[in-house]
Design a protein around this nucleic acid. Structure first.
Lengths: 262, 262
DNA sequence: TCGCATCTATTGTATGATGAATGAAATTGC
DNA sequence: GCAATTTCATTCATCATACAATAGATGCGA
């Protein structure tokens, strides 16, 4: 009697013969976003007018417009009345957005994400650690320890390890009790995941990282700001070392800043 | 026969006798946002269901929904099916958003914006200055100098001075050629305006600030990273000094970090 | 041919209606 | 009496359509 309860057809890519108003905006957004990231619509070009896009994708203008709005919010396109919707310069793209990272696929490497994320971490994390040492609540410190335990227990599961690692650094920024840092955390979240994933590929180096993470939690517990800061620096030195090959292999990468510990 | 061509009435604020579908979404969004920020809809409460809001404001449900979506994007509210739209905790609010700052009005002070903005600047700006010293293009340095000149020529016009000041710091972050810093710049832009406005209220202290800004441009021109960093530190010491009264007058403010120069 | 007003195509904003999803309350089965 | 199920009100997503505003194209007169 539950023939009706089994109607959870979530066939995202399928065409299906049941034209019952499926949820398509995500797909349309992804399709256009993908076409932009793959330079099928090159930077500076104007994409087809909205009505043509409606025909091409077989949806109403509402959906097209919502999709374009979503892309505009990510800095991919910029619409002007009567002119059309133009693809923005890559400089304008919000490359920290998880969707864009997904749409870029392997081409992420062209963006020098690893470099600027590492620079940002070097700038912010030690300070955040120091702040956290005096401001974090016991609950927040406990949460950090739990995240550390999940890293420890991840075993060979690189995905799980990275997930816990990202969560750890997210919690650390939140524990700094600075609203801007906190917001920064959610902004760079997706990029952090990518960066940490690259760091963590070398399984044999994870024990070392694990130790430093634990030491950091210990420093917070002792309310020792200087020690927390130092831990953070060592952690980043480690990350820089592990990332060096991945970054060197494509030249660029800002000078010496990535490996020095001031 | 051209009675139709003279219909360019763009009276934004007026009521007008020809109510032919005015543009109202901005106003509705502001009205609800204002009601939330003034705690007429307290944190945690559920605001009226969409149809009631339609009646109350006399617009279609589409407008209400777009407005709620805009508020949700700012972290003010969070809607769930069947439940309704709930006002989020203040912690969730994106207090860096220009609109929210405007809606908060004088109550901005409750948010400790000055403190966390200053902390962030202390963390990021010196590093950005150092990066800029080696990476900025000559054009970018020239732009910075132009911003400085606009500060110098602002005279008694505090608004113009602050505008140029904000622009200067925005350009500095962009000149660091780090995409995360660059993005940070646009995110904290509105809050910077507020913070610098507070700093710049004391007209007699502006000459000092002006000098340091010029020195920073000079350091960039000489590609002297250490000097640029030092300038930035002194600039922030100055800002901290000028903000001290505004911040002290309402307790709080994170410990010692705001006035020390590491 | 040049400069100005007018026209027109395209994007932007608003409306009402309807299917789809959701979760809490009412109802039924045991 | 309690738990599982159904119902139902409400939000979410889409659609078709109409109106508004704007910038480029057109055309007219001097």
């Amino acid at each position: 009697m539950d023939a009706k309860s089994t109607q959870r057809k979530s066939e995202t890519g399928g065409d299906a013969a049941q034209p019952r108003r499926p949820r398509v905006q995500k797909d349309i957004t992804a399709a256009i976003g993908l076409d932009i990231c793959s330079e099928r619509y090159p930077v500076g070009s104007v994409l087809p007018k909205e009505n043509d896009l409606c025909d091409r994708y077989g949806v109403s203008r509402t959906v097209i417009r919502e999709s374009l709005k979503a892309l505009a919010a990510r800095g991919l396109v910029h619409g002007r009345p009567r002119i059309g919707t133009m693809v923005c310069e890559k400089e304008e793209w919000n490359i920290l957005d998880p969707q864009i990272l997904a749409w870029m696929g392997p081409r992420i490497e062209e963006l020098d994400l690893l470099g600027c994320i590492l620079e940002t971490r070097r700038t912010v994390e030690p300070v955040a650690a120091e702040f956290a040492a005096e401001r974090a609540t016991v609950q927040e410190i406990a949460d950090l320890e739990n995240a550390w335990k999940r890293m420890r227990d991840a075993g060979a599961d690189t995905e799980a390890f990275t997930r816990a690692d990202v969560h750890f650094h997210e919690l650390l920024l939140k524990a700094s009790h600075n609203r801007v840092f906190r917001q920064l955390s959610s902004i760079i979240d997706a990029a952090m995941k990518y960066a940490l994933h690259c760091s963590n590929k070398a399984v044999d180096k994870r024990d070392e990282a694990l130790d430093i993470h634990r030491e950091l939690v210990e420093a917070l517990r002792l309310r020792d700001g200087a020690a927390a800061r130092a831990c953070s620096h060592r952690m980043l030195d480690l990350a820089a070392r592990d990332l060096a090959p991945a970054m060197r292999q494509r030249g660029q990468a800002g000078r010496t800043h990535l490996t020095k510990s001031p």
